[in-house]
Structures are given as structure tokens and as C-alpha cells.
Nucleic acid binder design. Structure first.
Length: 469
RNA sequence: GUGGAUUUAGCUCAGUUGGUUAGAGCACGAGGUUGUGGUCCUCGGGGUCGCGGGUUCGAAUCCCGUAAUCCACCCCA
């Protein structure tokens, strides 16, 4: 019979115990921090109707999906993200859910893209959504949660930067000054790429997008800005616009400060300063985020040192729930993928050694020097079992993590060496001489002390030794 | 989807202009004289050299195809 060599499919990963430990570490932090910020965990199906993904993103996105047809001729697709499922879930039960709806999820997602650094075809994505809150409190809570998670991973504000912008504001500024509304999507496309190119690359981009001289000048101005505050930027922008217009002999554009949307953005910045978030955040005109469904505030977290792609990104999408057949509910959300995050954590040496070593230190290690394994096996099963109290409906004594050697040697020195290497706190030595007297030795592996205990009370003694309280 | 580099043991890698039976370190397993600690010593299992063709007396090595990985594009919810 012919044998075949199988590999994991392109862009997927195998999680052997060491990799699984790191993945669990990341997911545990996402989950723990989400819960403490008042979010509840949800999940949905791994695949959805193909149409669900066309509602939001349009038909061109289909080429990036893993899609298939079931035997009932239904077109389905593996989820490329969680937001459509979430929107569907909210829309279905919108009437009965308490507001605001604060949900998070850690779905596995799939995209049929060319894998490269920080981007795979199957990945985990922490997804946070805050629905039914019109005020910018939702934005701040999401930012606080996202930043808190990164801090929990041991990263500092020196490692990452939160850049933010406001799409509605930007649209008003552009349209209110010089840009025809139909050029806005080109403008967003250009802004999104501005910092990736040098002067020549940007020229090519402007040509390709059919930019007017005015637009070019504007984009070049933005390309030259970085790290200014919102008010500095709007002042600079006003001055720049006035200068341009006077030189071209055109009537001056309306004062940017009097644009209606402007006050809400300034207010947002002021409220950020009232929290401790402002230190990590900077206004950034070049952040617009890819697709069209963000309606206001948008943000992106990037690595300060590396050329990594964004660690996380999100924003406000006020129309989405409605698009999926629900009521009109404002919403803010963000996503963070495991792939880029893990690269960053490894590069900054932020994954604890105990996680990398994947040591699950046992509570107790059985050293069996007997010819027969029966005593050791009975003991280990007893130790591992929890004690359940059925009247109180709870576990009254949790089972212990008990290990033994799977090697055939009965050399106590070797076995103790293995016990110590396992990181166990206690070792039980079962040997013939003691067993004949109905006792065993209980050894504290940390201080190397040992005492003789009766087989009758051994299990209680072990529990007592591990939990002195 | 496009271009470049890469693929030899579980991992990291040697392997000369094509020439005997393809190596090392780490890891893994056994033993070190049946009773006490991460060291050390000895031994061992492991490879269709990514896969499939071709050239050759002979291919890990040269040629063609193909898959995967990494990097750069495209795209990025």
C-alpha cells in the first residue's frame, strides 16, 4: 500500500503542546481582561451563509473566502471575521438584550489569502464589540480594554502606539474645503497607504488614483505630519488650506473650526485627556482603515519599533446592525489577531519562561520502587479524583495533579531526579520495606525533607501538605 | 494570483568538482549492579535527503515539474 506524506495545509499551524501553551496564554489574557472590563463571551458557527459576508463587504470579498456548497445547494463560507455573525446575533435578539451590549469572542477565522509574515489562512482573533451606545464612552471603553490587554501582556506604551482618526470628521473637512464627494473613497485609499511609500512611490500612487494638484498638495502635507495633537493638526491644516487657496486666487475655504462635526472630535480628544489613555493615543490623519463600514472614530494599534502590520484595529460602525435586519444601534468594535501579537511578544521577550517551557508543575510525583505498578496506579487515580459533595452541589476537595514515571527503571535516584525535574512539590516513595509495614515516604522536593506516613492516611497527608491552610 | 530565496533525523544545521553503508549537536529511549536529586559516563532507536520525473555506470549534489515555508508585491474585514 502506498503511503503519502501529508503536511498541514498552506497557511495553517499545528499546535503541539509547546505552541498550544503559548496560544492558551494569549487567549487566557484576552478572556480575563475582557471579563474584568464587563464584556461577556459569545461564539457562533464557524461557517455562515455566503450572503452574510456579501452584505457588508460586497462581492469582491468572495475571492478571499473559503466557500463551499452543501448537499442542499446552499452557498456557505468559513468565517473570515466575526462581526457579521455578531451583527446577525444582535439583530435576531435585539429587542430582548439589555443595553449596552458588551460582548467579546475569540473565534478561529479563515481567509484564503497568500500567507506571509503576520498573516495566515487560519488564525485566532480577539473580537470586542460594544453595541447600543451612541456616546463616545463606548470608544473610550474599547480603547481602555484594548490597551489594558496589551499592558497585561507586559508591553508598555513604548512598545505600541494607538493612532486614531475620525472618518466623518475627515470627510467633512475634505468636502467642506475642496474635495468633490465622489473623490472621498480614493482619498481614504491614498491616506491608508501614505506612510508606506517614499516620495516617488506616492507620486505613482497619486497618478494611479487620478489626483488633482490640489489633492496632491494636501496628501503631501499629511505625509509630512506625524505625532501632532488634533488641535495642532487642524491649525496646521487650516493654515495650509488658506495658503493654498490664496495662492491659487480662490475664495478661502470655510474655517475648519466651524465645521459642525469638528466640535465632537475635539470633545473626544478632551475626554481622552481626562482619562489616562491620552498618553498612549495620538491623532493620526493617515489612519482610515480599509473597508467602508466604519462611520466615525477609527483606530489602529501599531508596533513602535517594527515594521509589523497593525496589532489591532477598530472603530465605530453605526449602520451595521441595521444592515443585518436589526434596529438602528450604534456600535464600536475592534479586533486583534493572534499571529502578529505573538510575533511581537516573542520579539520583545514578553512570554513568560514557564509558558515557553510549558511546565505544568504537578502537585505530587509517585516514585514507584516496587516490582508491581498496582499500588502506584491505585494511589495516583485516588489522588487525581475530585471529591464531590452532592448535598452542597460542589466540589469539596479538588483532585490533584499527580504524575508518575513511565520509565521502567526502579532506581529511586533516577526516579527522584525525574520527580524533581517535573517541578512537583511532593514525592511519594513506594518501596517494599515500607509497604510491608503499611507505610510510605513522603518527601518535600523543595527542602528535601522526608517523613514516614501510614498508607491509611497518605492521601489526607498529601492534601494537608499541599494546602497548609 | 506575481516574483525571489529555501526544503537533509523530532529541532538547529554540516555534507568538497556527481563517487562506498548520509553525519554532528540538542531532544528522545535504555543502562550505570534493585533505596535518594536536574551533573556525568556508555549504548540505542530514528532519514524514500519535500514529492514526482529526467540526465548518468552512479544523484542529497545537475536539469524539469510540483507542493510547502520565508521574504517582497496584490490585498487586508
Amino acid at each position: 500500500m502506498a503511503t503519502e506524506n501529508f503536511q498541514a495545509p498552506k497557511g495553517t499551524r499545528d499546535f503541539y503542546p509547546d505552541e498550544m501553551a503559548v496560544r492558551r496564554y494569549i487567549e487566557d489574557i484576552w478572556r480575563r481582561v475582557s471579563i474584568r472590563h464587563g464584556f461577556q463571551e459569545v461564539d457562533g458557527p464557524t461557517f455562515e451563509s455566503l450572503d452574510l459576508y456579501k452584505v457588508k463587504s460586497g462581492v469582491e470579498i468572495v475571492s478571499q473566502l473559503f466557500s463551499f456548497t452543501d448537499r442542499g445547494q446552499r452557498d456557505l463560507a468559513l468565517r473570515p471575521e466575526f462581526t457579521p455573525t455578531l451583527a446577525r446575533m444582535v439583530a435576531q435578539r435585539a429587542a430582548g438584550l439589555p443595553r449596552p451590549i458588551k460582548w467579546f469572542s475569540i473565534p478561529r477565522c479563515y481567509r484564503a489569502e497568500q500567507p506571509q509574515k503576520g498573516r495566515l489562512r487560519e488564525f485566532m482573533q480577539w473580537n470586542v464589540d460594544y453595541i447600543g451606545e451612541a456616546s463616545d464612552r463606548a470608544e473610550r471603553e474599547c480603547l481602555a480594554l484594548c490597551a489594558d490587554a496589551l499592558l497585561e501582556f507586559g508591553l508598555t506604551p513604548d512598545d505600541f502606539r494607538i493612532g486614531w482618526n475620525h472618518r466623518a470628521w475627515l470627510t467633512h473637512v475634505l468636502v467642506g474645503t475642496f474635495m468633490p464627494p465622489e473623490r472621498i473613497s480614493n482619498a481614504f485609499y491614498i491616506l491608508d497607504r501614505l506612510h508606506k511609500y517614499d516620495r516617488a512611490g506616492r507620486e505613482a500612487l497619486y497618478r494611479e488614483q487620478g489626483c488633482s494638484d490640489k489633492e496632491k498638495a494636501y496628501f503631501e502635507f499629511i505625509a509630512g505630519t506625524s505625532n501632532q495633537s488634533l488641535s495642532e493638526l487642524t491649525d496646521l491644516l487650516s493654515a495650509f488650506m488658506l495658503d493654498r487657496h490664496s495662492r491659487l486666487g480662490e475664495p478661502p475655504p470655510p474655517d475648519l473650526c466651524h465645521l459642525k462635526i469638528d466640535s465632537t472630535v475635539r470633545e473626544f480628544e478632551k475626554r481622552l485627556k481626562d482619562t489616562n489613555l491620552a498618553a498612549m493615543c495620538s491623532f493620526d490623519l493617515s489612519i482610515v482603515r480599509g473597508l467602508a463600514y466604519y462611520t466615525g472614530f477609527v483606530f489602529e494599534i501599531s508596533d513602535r519599533q517594527g515594521e509589523n502590520r497593525a496589532i489591532a484595529g477598530g472603530g465605530r460602525y453605526d449602520n451595521l446592525i441595521e444592515m443585518f435586519g436589526g434596529p438602528s444601534l450604534g456600535a464600536v468594535g475592534f479586533g486583534m489577531g493572534d499571529v502578529v501579537l505573538e510575533i511581537l511578544l516573542r520579539r520583545r521577550d514578553k512570554i513568560p519562561k514557564a509558558i515557553l517551557d510549558n511546565h505544568q508543575n504537578p502537585d505530587v510525583f509517585i516514585v514507584n520502587a516496587l516490582d508491581d505498578a498496582v499500588h502506584a496506579e491505585r494511589l495516583i487515580f485516588e489522588l487525581r479524583r475530585s471529591q464531590w459533595d452532592s448535598t452542597r452541589q460542589r466540589i469539596i476537595r479538588p483532585g490533584l495533579h499527580a504524575e508518575c514515571s513511565y520509565r521502567s527503571t526502579r532506581n529511586i535516584g533516577k526516579l527522584l531526579q525525574e520527580a524533581a525535574a517535573s517541578g512537583a512539590k511532593l514525592a511519594v516513595i513506594l518501596a517494599r520495606a515500607e509497604l510491608q509495614r503499611g507505610v510510605a515516604k513522603l518527601k518535600n522536593l523543595a527542602d528535601r525533607s522526608e517523613r514516614t506516613v501510614s498508607m491509611e492516611t497518605l492521601i489526607e497527608e498529601i492534601h494537608a501538605a499541599l494546602d497548609p491552610a
